[in-house]
């Protein structure tokens, strides 16, 4: 397992290099002068020249890229053209909020989706199964922005039981920063009121994001379970007299979970994209919001930083999925 993980980690390097080259080239193709963006709209020729010299913008593109990579290896992702802050520092500020939202979303999608898939597969053709199929089409097909507004109107507007936006209430004291995720940090120091408030704020955006993921996970689990339940080893288990529940959970489910695991991995990429919209709708203040403003302000170092971090997350999740495969199916061995 160790050599496999090391090899996969090494394989990430060319992927990240490729993504960085592509992003660097594409952002430099965009209209606009980064020197003017950094120096300001009314900067004179002398100021523009000074900025070009300082940022190396007067050098050929490959040299600029090499300089960028040189700084990147030292952990320097550059400086935002608009906020003048280090991109790495800003990512450290925004990323935990997105990670918290992603984790909450995945917890909902997995903890609801898998049991629902198993439940409906074992009651194939029942009214519950048919109702689920209807719900899953609704969940997958409903645009997230519409779902977000619907939940906001119902829970924040009509019922008034959940906050409409933000990560914490105005009167709530934020917990000391360890991970940057309010729920985790509040839990670590035992700030229960803060924890509860953070959870209340997390619920609507996580539910919105989880809607499509839950449906997808449940559908795949149901389909895989149905296939597994038709297999000979399941018939054998039944013939041996195992209780039906044990047949489902011990024999059919572990095999059915393999495709589900793939879908969960793919969901992370989908969710990373979805956070841009959801974070803006719920004023979440995470990576999605940062990406949104970075793109609108043509802030190239920010766009580069976000692309690299999103790619890294995706690659790590993929590696995680491969490792889970081996755990679920003893036949899979990584040399």
């Amino acid at each position: 397992m160790g050599p496999f993980v090391a090899r996969r980690l090494l394989q990430m390097v060319p992927v990240l290099l490729g993504v960085s080259i592509l992003t660097f080239a594409l952002t430099n193709l965009l209209p606009g002068d980064p020197a003017r963006a950094a120096a300001g709209r009314h900067a004179n020729a002398e100021q523009l020249e000074a900025v070009r010299d300082r940022l190396g913008l007067d050098r050929p593109l490959p040299v600029q890229y090499a300089m960028y990579m040189g700084r990147l290896l030292q952990g320097d992702l550059g400086t935002s053209l608009t906020s003048k802050q280090a991109v790495a520092e800003e990512l450290r500020l925004f990323f935990p909020a997105t990670l918290e939202l992603l984790l909450a979303t995945m917890v909902i999608a997995v903890s609801v989706g898998i049991p629902l898939g198993v439940f409906t597969a074992t009651r194939r053709g029942s009214w519950a199964d048919r109702a689920f199929l209807g719900f899953s089409y609704f969940g997958v097909g409903m645009p997230v922005f519409f779902m977000a507004l619907l939940l906001q109107i119902v829970f924040a507007g009509w019922l008034r039981v959940l906050p409409i936006a933000g990560r914490l209430g105005l009167e709530t004291v934020p917990p000391p920063t360890f991970t940057g995720m309010y729920t985790v940090d509040a839990l670590l120091v035992g700030q229960w009121t803060t924890l509860l408030d953070a959870l209340r704020h997390l619920l609507l955006p996580a539910l919105t994001l989880a809607m499509a993921g839950t449906s997808e996970v449940a559908r795949i689990t149901r389909r895989s379970m149905l296939q597994a339940l038709d297999q000979e080893y399941v018939r054998t288990a039944r013939a041996k007299g195992f209780p039906e529940r044990t047949v489902w959970l011990r024999h059919a489910l572990p095999n059915a979970l393999l495709p589900t695991t793939t879908v969960i991995g793919l969901q992370v990429a989908f969710l990373l994209g979805g956070t841009v919209l959801i974070e803006n709708l719920f004023s979440w203040g995470g990576l999605g919001t940062y990406a949104w403003t970075g793109i609108f302000r043509m802030d190239i170092p920010v766009i580069m930083g976000i692309t690299l971090i999103a790619t890294t997350v995706y690659l790590i999740v993929n590696l995680g999925v491969d490792l889970v495969y081996a755990r679920l199916d003893p036949r899979i061995r990584y040399e």
């Binding site: 507007g157 409409i164 004023s283």
Partner: peptide, 20 residues
């Protein structure tokens, strides 16, 4: 006072009506 960003107008409207 708090200046808070809510980009979606429907959400701002709900917050005002509910007294938030």
């Amino acid at each position: 006072a708090v200046f808070r960003v809510i980009r979606e107008e429907v959400a701002r409207r709900i917050a005002l009506v509910t007294g938030d």
